[in-house]
Design a protein around this nucleic acid. Structure first.
Lengths: 258, 258
DNA sequence: TTGAAACGTGAACAATCGTGCAATATGGAG
DNA sequence: CTCCATATTGCACGATTGTTCACGTTTCAA
């Protein structure tokens, strides 16, 4: 029982910090049965390693540099996270899931429940990086030339790679969704990739924020009736929504952000 | 109990570690009826095999969740950065460079001068993420199943992908470097990949910190004379260093950290 | 402004570490 | 069977690291 080496403490503190929790010297001292001096020295050491920020009374996790893309936008993030959570609920244990490029899809990673036992493939560097710390999830990276605008691989090699996959459920990153334009993207290579991805997938899910709804981008990927589940925000405008329903799309409203 | 051969004890300890438990030297010594010295030796051995992480008072299981890259940002970082800077100086504009997995190689990204106009390929998610922000560098991601211990792709697909590349200069991530053991790695898949990588490369560079020098890991990648440039720390011990030179390795000492 | 709590530093002390050495198995070759 | 190489162990030593305590300083809040 007392199998913990004395310095496991330091790692436990680091783990909490990495998890986003803030810690106080007094609490930790009581918890580990050490003097506050020892704890303070630990915190100072961790701070020196850049793992936390030292404050009066304890330490705060510091997470500024670790977010690669536009995840830091506050309000946007909450709205997108609501979509991501609704999308994550659709996933069933044991499935082979593909997460396409996109900031909303990136948030699905955070929305996945613990220990879900999945295999996930992606062509997005940000998504793969976020998934790499999940031991319960098998991760498959689709390689190729990295498109700097997209932040992932969408070249011919990537298309070929997804063509060989039997995907249960793919989350297609859409730039725009409308009845006339279907699901569309800004870049042609990106669109080509997404088309191949949808062709390899049993079920296609699209998470669409309000500003994507009812707009068109240059390159068409799919007609809307090829979407198996289109997840929209709780306050999505009724106009485009009912129009999409009329064209055979299965709409799903996300719960409002808490 | 005390009838067990030493190997059985090591296996038992390794099993606990693999199960996620942390162990303390004192407890284990009492439990097996051995002196702490013997236990410490076991732990040191297991740590050298990459099965656990040694801490003051015992050992911790090395978890997949604890990303090795973020955490190595302390004093280690400065020493590794000195190596990385020396390595980056070897790169010439216009080259096709491969950065293999490894925390030291990750720091090469930070050490690259601005607007250098390179094409870089990598199989490491961390390195690719770091490179994605550099508009002056063309980025090629080698895909495949992501090995959670390695943090990158080293499967058959990745081997096949590098076999098709004509690489000018590759930075091989080494777990150990010694005259008898050559360049070696902890995992067999990782070693196989690195071997294929070296075969596709004109020049092979290895950055070796002091603790890697003179040690051996289970899976051999290359003899040391296949290394074109072996970069070591400014204060690398002379024993292993001169021995390596005698075996045909081209040594290069990094400048001390400022 | 003032008091209490938290802080950093340095010294004393305890635990742990690594290494060299000698003693004791174990196992194969002659 | 003997001999030798190898592996493993316990012990002693100096070196390193962690812990606590004491003391003076800084920070926070009233």
């Amino acid at each position: 029982m007392s199998n913990d080496p004395p310095l496991a403490r330091r790692d436990q503190i680091a783990a909490r910090l990495a998890d986003g929790q803030s810690v106080s010297s007094a609490t930790l001292a009581a918890e580990f049965g050490m003097s506050e001096d020892a704890i303070r020295r630990d915190l100072r050491l961790l701070a020196a390693q850049g793992l936390c920020r030292r404050v009066y009374g304890g330490a705060l996790p510091l997470q500024i540099g670790s977010i690669p893309f536009d995840q830091r936008s506050g309000e946007d993030r909450d709205r997108k996270f609501a979509l991501a959570r609704r999308g994550a609920e659709l996933i069933e244990p044991g499935e082979f899931v593909f997460l396409d490029n996109g900031s909303t899809n990136l948030l699905i990673v955070d929305a996945l429940p613990d220990e879900i036992e999945l295999t996930i493939a992606t062509n997005s560097l940000a998504i793969a990086s976020a998934l790499a710390r999940r031991p319960d999830i098998g991760l498959l990276m689709v390689g190729g030339a990295v498109d700097p605008l997209v932040g992932g691989c969408v070249d011919a090699g990537a298309v070929q790679a997804v063509a060989m996959m039997n995907i249960d459920r793919c989350f297609l990153g859409a730039c725009s969704v409308s009845t006339e334009g279907g699901v569309s993207a800004f870049e042609i290579a990106d669109a080509t990739f997404k088309r191949a991805l949808a062709d390899s997938s049993q079920r296609v899910i699209v998470l669409a924020t309000n500003e994507k709804l009812g707009t068109s981008a240059p390159h068409r990927i799919l007609p809307t009736d090829r979407i198996d589940q289109l997840v929209i925000e709780h306050d999505a405008p009724d106009g485009p929504a009912s129009e999409l329903t009329a064209h055979g799309a299965a709409l799903l409203r996300a719960a409002p952000a808490p």
